[in-house]
Design a protein around this nucleic acid. Structure first.
Lengths: 153, 153
DNA sequence: TTCTTCTCAACTAAAACAGTCGACAAGATA
DNA sequence: TATCTTGTCGACTGTTTTAGTTGAGAAGAA
């Protein structure tokens, strides 16, 4: 259940792009990397994957750089994560909807499917614009309200 | 966002133990491994970790084997996962409550905390007894009801 | 043409994953 | 006590994933 450096970097870079959405000028890789403290080469690899998934647009040459391909309010965190990591949840690399167990564990896949649904509940409802603007949706507020949510687990 | 073979095996074995809870006779590693189709040596390593975490009890010698240390209805899937994998959610190995970002991503940690809370919502409410008996709690039913929950993502 | 910036494939070191193996410890039984 | 059974523990191994780096090249702008 870990979020990799790559996934984390992808979201952070995308959020920075969301923050300058209106400016319409592409942002350079070097600047993005510096803003979030991410190794530049690694970040550019990641950004290329985001482009291939249609999340960002790029331009080369002087005045080149990266920008979002769609409005930041229409790109969710789930979109970004899927672009760089594939399916949100998998058991040994298999999607939870296509596995089956015998014996007493027969109903276990339902638990994994519920788990994935829980992830989607959050990740598909938070947009890049939400994070950049600092206005997080209700689904996040509700879940972070219990002070317990902030204690170690 | 993947569930490893180890985590999956741990839960499946624990559920099998829950299924024979009343019999009070320890179950042999070899039998457990055969029931769920898990490599025996690997499984016994995992079961030893579960014992060290106080989730199961073991006995050696003829008539030895494994059994739950507490009632199955009091052991959640989260307990088992934490025993073999550590914290439920982490970003680059760091717990979401103790990370901080600069720039536009400043509010991102809240999203990760909400994500973890979502996982806990499911995993801390499903017990081994629930799965073994085939009576899953409301939190699972609600989330698996939308037919959409079962489609690939 | 030259300067800038993204692109792409290849490469690498280290860690995590998914096991296997063998010697040993501890109970049960004869 | 000897022996059989079964769990315990540490070390070992092969593969995949993670987290990058590097370098040659393509595409624009000036």
């Amino acid at each position: 259940m870990r979020i990799t450096a790559k996934a984390d970097y992808a979201v952070r870079a995308a959020v920075e792009l969301a923050a300058v959405e209106k400016s319409d000028k592409p942002v350079k890789g070097e600047y993005l990397a510096r803003l979030q403290g991410i190794p530049q080469n690694f970040l550019e690899n990641i950004l290329t994957e985001l482009r291939r998934s249609g999340i960002i647009r790029t331009r080369r040459g002087a005045d080149g750089g990266y920008q979002l391909a769609r409005p930041a309010a229409e790109i969710t965190v789930a979109d970004v994560l899927r672009a760089v990591e594939g399916p949100l949840a998998a058991v040994q690399g298999i999607r939870p909807d296509e596995l089956s167990y015998g014996g007493a564990a027969e109903r276990l896949p339902e638990v994994w499917v519920a788990l994935r649904a829980s992830l989607r509940d959050v990740l598909e409802h938070v947009t890049l614009a939400d994070i950049a603007r600092g206005r997080l949706p209700a689904v996040v507020k509700e879940r972070t309200r219990p002070k317990d949510a902030w204690r170690a687990h």
